[in-house]
Structure formats: structure tokens, C-alpha cells
Design a binder for these strands. Sequence first.
DNA 1: GACAACCTGACC
DNA 2: GGTCAGGTTGTC
Length: 269
Amino acid sequence: MPELPEVETIVGDLRRDILGRKITGVRYLTRSVWRKKPPRAVLLLGARVNQISRRGKHILIHLSNEYTLVFHLKMTGRLTYENSSDPRRKHTHLILNLDKGQLRFNDIRRFGYIDLVGVGKLENLDYLEALGPDAMEISKDEFIRLLKSKKRIIKSLLVDQSVLAGLGNIYTDEALHLARIHPRRVSARLSVSKLARLHDAILETLRKALAARGSSVDNYVDGRGAKGSFQEQHLVYGREGKPCRTCGRPIRRLTIGSRSTHYCPECQR
DNA sequence: GACAACCTGACC
DNA sequence: GGTCAGGTTGTC
């Protein structure tokens, strides 16, 4: 399930592989993955990839004709650069032929979506406008002010993209363990020093995950189809019953806001 | 502020 | 055959 480090890894890979490439053909294999109607092919054909960026968990591919392709991978989406001769996987929904190779969007569960956004429309796109500050870019002061202003269970708050963009279930659990904060604590009631520690923990977790090219716990792969390795370093996520790497007591799992939450009852208070 | 819905595959 | 996985939207 791609969160900020996975999306950032894919963006980096695509920058290496498709920057400057020209779209020479489009194949719409599943029309319903488009957020709106699939665009007329003429809006894509002949355009070159000018720039690739990330907003929260969204991947933006900026084209030379000033249109932008927006992808959200949700849980099982993959966006990969492949050779035209590579066998097509099941659940491939879009293939863009490039002057060299192909960009393919694949998504088993079809929760993800693709959007094509016209000139100047990017800035007032509802689902991008709704995003809070980026988890990687927010300053410590701004972070503390933000969390102090909300009276919510910290776990639920951190996965809320309208509050802070980029964290999902994995990195929220990981960062809370690193900061030694119990996932049920209420944001506004945390001390300034604890919130400062949480800000540090989020940055450190994301930085390490990025260095390991993301967590492949489910079916996440990078822009070239390779798995990440951060799952091997997880402190709590997916480690229920296993010993805490700090104190040795078993990691526990509970449900907060209908999502499974992993934590150490000894280390996190 | 909780929870069903969207989907498929893995697992029991 | 039933449950679970969880990002986001939509509904209450």
C-alpha cells in the first residue's frame, strides 16, 4: 500500500525512465479507472513528459501540452515503466506507449484512479486542495501548532490526509513507536516536547523508508517493478506477537477508527 | 466521528 | 464460505 515513501520512490524512478519521453499511443483497458471519462486520445498523443511530481500520495505527470496526468494508487495500484515486449499482467488498466517503452497502470482492486487535468485546473482541483501540509515538508513549529489545535486520537489524526498529507497506516504506527507515544493519546493533550519528538520520528521514519525504497508488505513495487525492503526494519507494523525491538515485550494490535494499529504497550505511553 | 462501500486475493 | 487487508469518499 503506497504511502509517501513508496510514492516518492516511484516518482524518482519515473523521472529516470520517462522524463522527456513522447506518448505515441494509448490503450484504455478499463475505462472505469478514470476519475472522469477517459480523455480523447488526441489530448495525450504527441505530448512529452515534462516533469513528474508528488502531492501527498498522488503522482502528477506534467505533459508538454500543459495537461497533467494524476494517479492515485490507493491500496494495490502500480505505476511502472516496462518494455513494450514485457508480458502484460492481469489487472492492467492503462498502457501509454512511449517513443521508448511503456508506462502501465495496474491495480488489482481498482480502488486507485487516473485523472487528466487541463491547463490551469490543477490549482483548484478538489481532491488536491483538500490535502493538508506534506508530512515531509511541514516545519516543527507548524506541526506542533497543527496538532495542538486538534483534539483527536493521534492515530486517526495522522492518517487523515486533510490534516497531514503522506502518512498511511504503516508509517503512522512506525512513527508513533519511534516517538514512544501511545496511538490512543489525544493530539492536543500531548506536551510540546512529545510533539517535537513525534515530528522528528515522522521525518526519520520517512527518510529511512525512502532509503530502503519503501515497504513491500502487500504488493507494492517501485517504478521498475522491484520490491522495497523497509518491511524488514519495521518496529511494529505487521509484528503482532513478536518481541518489541526496544524492550522485548510482545507487540500488540488494536483497532482504532476501524484500522489495525500496532504498538508496544510498554514503550508507548 | 463512526462506518459502509468500493474491489480482489490470501488465508482460514 | 467467511474474514481480512486499508486509502479515500460518502453517508449518517
